[in-house]
Write a protein that binds this DNA or RNA. Structure first.
Length: 211
DNA sequence: ACCCAGGTGGCCC
DNA sequence: GGGCCACATGGG
């Protein structure tokens, strides 16, 4: 595992994995990105920004219909419109419209609260905690478990198990978590998409990708 | 005409 | 408690 991370560190420089100007922007993006790609999400985020909707109070009083129209191109727009609105309403109601007020609570408390919200499961909750809150929670995305299982480093399809495993190998630090996550996902994407790169794969000797 | 993309929730057995 | 399925759009 250390060998894998070491090799990755030497190969990739992942700057700005989650580009955003505010924690709230990360939270909204975390819901919008589900089952889609950043290419679809980025312009939608910009549109929300132009309309002044990357603001908790504004978002909370915007109609679902209007939100649906704006975010349509991210897919799942009806659910996601409801969800980002409900998220905003929750922040207004219980956290003085301040994401930090939610995110800075004790880690498990904040995580459980996030997961109570519709559309926020384990992975999204952890992504929000890490990238919006700067809290030490490793995001055990499918890409990560895929890399670990295909390298034979750790085989499990259970989210918490994979998360615990990776966290046990890393210094409990938000930047370490964020960086390692970005590196692993980047590797997974490279390998899935452009086969030729496999020859120059930094962890070639660790990998046995046959598919 | 497929398949994938930085998931979640609900229903079924 | 694991295994499907809907959710919807854009790009290869």
């Amino acid at each position: 595992m250390n060998e894998l991370l070491e090799a990755l560190r030497c190969t990739y420089v992942v700057a700005d994995w989650w580009p955003a100007e505010s924690p709230y922007e990360v939270m909204v993006g975390a819901v919008l990105i589900q089952r889609t790609n950043w290419q679809n999400v980025a312009p939608v985020i910009e549109e929300l920004r132009c309309r002044g909707l990357l603001d908790v109070d504004r978002m909370a009083i915007t109609s679902v219909n209007e939100l649906e129209a704006i975010i349509r191109r991210v897919g799942f727009f009806r659910q996601k419109a409801m969800r980002i609105k409900a998220l905003a309403e929750h922040l207004v109601r219980y956290h003085c419209s301040d994401p930090a007020h939610l995110l800075n609570q004790e880690l498990e408390v904040a995580r459980n609260e996030l997961m109570q919200l519709n559309g926020i499961g384990q992975e999204t909750a952890d992504a929000i905690l890490l990238f919006a809150g700067g809290r030490p929670r490793f995001v055990a995305a499918v890409y990560v478990s895929r890399i670990l299982s295909r390298t034979g480093i750790f085989v499990s399809s259970d989210y918490s198990e994979v998360q615990d495993f990776v966290e046990s190998w890393l210094v409990r630090d938000r930047d370490v978590y964020a960086r390692s996550y970005a590196l692993l996902v980047q590797l997974a994407k490279d390998r899935c998409r452009s086969r030729p790169r496999c020859q120059g794969c930094p962890v070639r000797h660790l990998c046995s990708f046959s598919s």
